[in-house]
Amino acid sequence: MKRLKRHLPDAIMAFTALSFVLPLVVMLLTSFKPEAEVLNPESVVPDDWTTSNYQHVLGWSEEAPFVRWLLNSLFISTTVTLLVMLFSAMAAYAITRLRLPGTKAFLGLVVATMMLPAQLFLVPVYLILSQLRLLDTPWALIIPATAGGFGVFLMCQFMRAVPRTIEEAALIDGCSKLGVFLHVNLPLCAPALATLGVFTFIGSWNDFVGPLIFLDSIRNYTLPVGIALYQSSYVTEYGLTLATSVLATAPLIVVFMVFQRQIIESMATSGMKG
């Protein structure tokens, strides 16, 4: 009885987790159906399996240069993630540790701007990118993405929790500010940084409107934008859309599964203290 009670959370959580994944299983199964079967609720499992959706999506590089898109997506998301992690950690260090005048107000401003709907910025950002001659380059997606407030806000919340005593000891040992940042704060905030990295990578990967508005050449598109090619206001090619989606999401899931131990597990051992 006692043993049963102890394992009750395991059972409940396993069941919950399964129900969360079910819609994705439906998506995966549906991507192997012929178009006529796609929306049929009576057979969630395909009656006759087909890979024709995948063959179509991967097969016509003139319409959908998939490998090129994968390369673009990887480059853009990796670079955005790197820059956001770096900029946010540095800014948070300056805000929480360096006693600069006005930093508190700056953080307030950063959080406040997060409350303005992003759609409002679309036209001004387009015009700025145009002036900087960055339209239709990957930088049009990378540079504006580093300006968001989420990372700085998150890193400040975590950085505050790092005990000052450790830094002070390092300073007494003759470490420079840069040294303290590199050797003390950055490692101590690794878990928070990793979390930020995961969220940033996923956000950048899934950006949908940005690539369509800021890029003109199909060759510069990112993977998820491919989904847009099979959907219109009236007709959705469900099989092709879902197959593209599976292909676009799979790299994310693989990266997350492989690195999740390093990424999130490390949080348990150090970092945020309430």
Partner: peptide, 20 residues
């Protein structure tokens, strides 16, 4: 470590840039 991860990502980013 955090530093190693950042360095690794920078190298990855550079590599992908070159590939593109």
């Amino acid at each position: 470590g955090a530093k190693a991860a950042l360095v690794l990502m920078a190298m990855l980013s550079l590599g992908l840039y070159t590939a593109r």
